[in-house]
Simulated assay, not measured.
Amino acid sequence: MNIKFDPNNAVIRLCMSGMSLEDSGNIEDATTMFYKAWHEATDDYERFIAAYHLARQQKIIADKLKWIEASLQCALNINDDNVKSAYSTLYLHIAKCYDELGDSDNALRNYESANLYNGAPSDEGPFYHGTKADLQVGDLLIAGGISNYKPELKMNHIYFTANVNGAGLAAALAKGEGKERVYIVKPIGEFENDPNVTDKKFPGNLTRSYRSQAPLRIIGEETEWAKPTTTERREWRENLAKSKGGIIN
């Protein structure tokens, strides 16, 4: 399977609404929204995400454990690269629940499983980088550019993704007046999960976003992706402007 993270998915939108309610302190309505996401989920991918957010809301450890184990089981059922990055996080939450319940054997077993999946990304792509720069096949993209989101910040890494629509959004938000371009790239060194999105709103790295200090080689150009509407672009820029979190550089 090769599932693409879609921010317009109905269940993901419900979870995003729940997180917004949570951020504003409205925990009861947030929990209701997460239950709604669970009941409206139609497959294991949607159930994995909804159950994860329900687990976070539980006050009783046994209930938290029940929901996080449900999330993990759905994730394991999928067996998809898009979801494997969440395994370590889910096993770690389960281990901590068993710790709090005094079950050291199950805690240790799940800590070991968390460590087993906590390695370098195994994603084999294809990978994409969105920009407004006019580049050629064979060119190298290198770290040291200015952030699209914080103009005062010089980036220590070059960023890329296995989600072509995510690269298209990055192209839309990039500085400059040039044509929006999505290049197919190949990392020529080690790379890591982008810590700015990994385990933030969703478990693992569902958007398959990565970064490297080594260059990326352009090996082609993609011309087909879901281009964000004018309204979506405005909303993204407004959300970025309101964002209080710093970029992990």
Rank of each mutant, 00 (worst) to 15 (best):
N9E: 06
M16F: 11
M16H: 12
G18A: 00
E22Y: 11
E22D: 15
S24K: 11
E28Q: 13
E28V: 13
Y35E: 13
A37F: 01
Y45F: 11
A51E: 03
Y52W: 13
L54Q: 08
L54V: 04
K59Y: 08
D63S: 12
K66I: 10
W67M: 11
E69I: 04
E69F: 02
A70I: 09
L72C: 02
D80V: 07
D81A: 14
Y87L: 09
L90C: 05
H93Y: 13
A114I: 04
Y117V: 08
N118R: 10
A120Q: 15
T131P: 10
T131W: 11
D139R: 00
I142Q: 13
S147F: 04
S147H: 01
M155I: 05
H157E: 05
Y159Q: 03
A162M: 04
A162I: 02
N165K: 05
G168M: 06
A172I: 05
A172F: 07
I184T: 04
G189C: 02
N193Q: 02
K201Q: 14
R208L: 02
S209R: 07
P215N: 00
R217T: 11
E221W: 02
P228W: 07
T230Y: 14
E232F: 06
R233L: 15
R237Y: 06
N239M: 13
G245M: 09
